[in-house]
Nucleic acid binder design. Structure first.
Lengths: 188, 188
DNA sequence: TGATTTCTGGAACGGTAATTCCATATTAAT
DNA sequence: ATTAATATGGAATTACCGTTCCAGAAATCA
């Protein structure tokens, strides 16, 4: 997974994968069929571990807008860490492969859908909690936040610094953080 | 350029380039040195034609916020056209190559910088014209809009539909379109 | 027109890619 | 302990990759 994450699908040779994993060539082919099969497994692993792990924090019961901000701060923190210029394996793979490999494309689109869904739920929770105006188009904003996360990942891949990424996050979150609802009509 | 745009650097073979251009193998090598040289030329061509063309519309003297919106509408319109799933050659190349090819990475980062700059100027014009509050952090928002454009491009590469892309644009532009300045203190 | 440069089609080259195979060693199951 | 299953190192295979080369055709220039 890490090899593919770093260099992409095409630029990673089977020899790279053998060296990186320390696993025998033959065993690799026995288990995953071919390079593409291993790649698919790597992406699946990424989705259900790396990605889902970060998303799970957003599904808690605490303040939803705060959870969304934390998600983005996490993203920025990771992007400028030593694992720099990695970006996101899903984003990278969408760009490299989605248009030419339908099954992998579908898998990646599903993953986007799940991210969007987590955002959507968080936004609904924010509305329920009175943190966010009911006028906000939740579906649209969820899509927007998903796209923004991808934009940040592209910037990360271009080695953007923390300040730049923070600027992006702050501006993006102004879409929801400046949207407290009006006072309730019948305040108790 | 189109071959690289469609399939990326690694997945495009020299044979593909020969077939796509109708130009002889030898002539190609005489002119561009090698595959990488041709790629570099393709990206340069993209930057100074495709990309610059779209950006130029934003540098006019008309209403700046409208120009920004038009830029994004253009993006969406192109992304769902027949040239679908192409995304942006710069975005695609950043993701595929920036971390492993310093010269090309630099070229692509420069291009990002120029986009950011065009946004920045437009935002400043908007402030001058009283379309945009002076409280807005212009640099941050310019970075944000650049990142958003990249996010849209990633979505386009994942074959997102027009509605989805419009949702993203509408939400993103709410960062600036809801920010009219307060009435001037000394209204005439 | 004749000379020079440029382009063409296509063969040829070396290298490395993905994949397969196998005899041997290791591990797990009975 | 014996058998069956799995992993290992590495060679072998096939194919395509990028790149070079060249003899001849076309175009350009004097």
């Amino acid at each position: 997974m890490q090899a593919f994450w770093r260099r992409g699908y095409e630029a990673t040779s089977v020899q790279d994968l053998v060296s990186a994993t320390g696993i025998n060539r033959g065993s690799m082919y026995d288990t995953f069929g071919d390079k593409r099969g291993l790649f698919q497994a790597a992406v699946e692993f990424y989705i259900s571990n790396v990605s889902a792990g970060r998303l799970k924090k957003m599904t808690g019961s605490g303040p939803a807008l705060e959870a969304i901000r934390d998600y983005f701060e996490d993203l920025v923190a990771f992007s400028v860490k030593d694992g720099r210029e990695l970006g996101c394996l899903i984003t990278n793979s969408v760009v490299e492969l989605a248009p030419h490999d339908a099954p992998i494309g579908d898998m990646l689109r599903d993953s986007f859908g799940r991210v969007e869904d987590v955002f959507r739920r968080a936004l609904l929770r924010a509305q329920d909690a009175g943190e966010l105006s009911l006028d906000v188009n939740v579906k649209a904003v969820a899509r927007f936040l998903t796209a923004t996360a991808n934009g940040i990942r592209v910037f990360a891949r271009a080695d953007a610094d923390a300040e730049t990424l923070h600027d992006i996050v702050d501006s993006a979150l102004s879409v929801i953080e400046g949207q407290r609802p009006d006072l309730p009509i019948a305040a108790e």
